[in-house]
């Protein structure tokens, strides 16, 4: 039976957290989460780690493996060179709870501020028709499993004190899913520009690189939103044109499909 060395950062606050070495008996096909479970069952029953599905579907087991944000249940031990120790530490962008568990409640607060889906009030059932091509775009965004790895990796949240000003890639993805919904009547552009701080994102794509659901966050969600914001607020030609036509607020809601 093979052996793998895992260094796990353990503790209840960042200052006193320590790297602890564990030697794990491994068998074929094991993922990092299996190794941690083995540690729990054999060496450290109180090792704290969050997980649920163990199938990369729930987004609970986010942490940083060898410094890179990943899902523990999807990261195979065999992805790393044999014989070298693997480091596992909690996500750095969020306050530590204990061991590998961080306090991600901030994300839920951000989420609660987003205006919910707003369908036309009285659309009859027959109006709820749309084609696959209308929704393929937003189905990509709805694949999000809320692992918050993108929030963890985004330098705007990680390196700058911007938690109150920038919603982060996960929530830009959510807003994109609402804004591009063929039946949605809501208007979140003002929110995006100010409260959500879309301008903080400098499209450097780290979020896209780590997303376990392979959502092309920057290209498909954030940049199109930036373009929509530009339509309303930064495009001198459009602004002039709107002035000329006398329309004041441009957020024209799409007519319900018939």
């Amino acid at each position: 039976m093979a052996e793998t060395i895992l260094w796990v950062l353990r503790g209840s606050d960042r200052e006193s957290a320590r790297w602890i070495e564990y030697r794990v008996e491994t068998e074929e096909g094991m993922v990092v989460l299996d190794a941690l479970h083995w540690i729990q069952a054999n060496l450290a029953p109180d090792l704290a780690v969050r997980w649920n599905c163990k199938a990369a579907k729930c987004g609970s087991c986010s942490a940083e493996v060898n410094g890179r944000p990943r899902l523990l249940c999807k990261t195979r031990l065999s992805d790393f060179p044999e014989g070298e120790a693997i480091t596992v530490e909690p996500m750095r962008a969020f306050p530590l709870v204990r061991d590998l568990v961080t306090d991600v409640s901030w994300n839920y607060q951000v989420n609660a501020r987003i205006a919910p889906f707003a369908p036309p009030a009285d659309a009859p059932e027959e109006a709820w028709r749309w084609q696959q091509e209308d929704i393929e775009r937003i189905q990509e965004f709805r694949r999000c499993i809320e692992c918050f790895l993108c929030q963890d990796v985004c330098h705007v949240l990680r390196n700058h004190e911007t938690e109150n000003e920038f919603a982060g890639p996960r929530y830009l993805v959510r807003v994109a899913g609402l804004e591009m919904h063929p039946m949605d009547q809501g208007d979140r552009l003002a929110y995006l520009r100010t409260d959500a701080g879309a301008g903080y994102c400098n499209i450097t794509k780290c979020c896209t690189e780590v997303c376990p659901e392979h959502i092309r966050i920057t290209d498909n969600a954030i940049i199109p939103l930036k373009e929509r914001i530009a339509d309303r607020y930064y495009d001198p030609i459009r602004i002039a044109w709107r002035k000329l036509r006398g329309g004041s607020e441009p957020g024209e809601p799409p007519a319900p499909a018939s």
Partner: peptide
């Protein structure tokens, strides 16, 4: 901004406005 995607401890913290303000706006 950023030098690389998230490796270990974030090593600097500072205020930041990026594309919200002149000139990047």
């Amino acid at each position: 901004d950023p030098p690389a995607c998230a490796v270990g401890e974030p090593w600097f913290h500072r205020r930041y406005a990026m594309e919200r303000k002149f000139p990047f706006i």
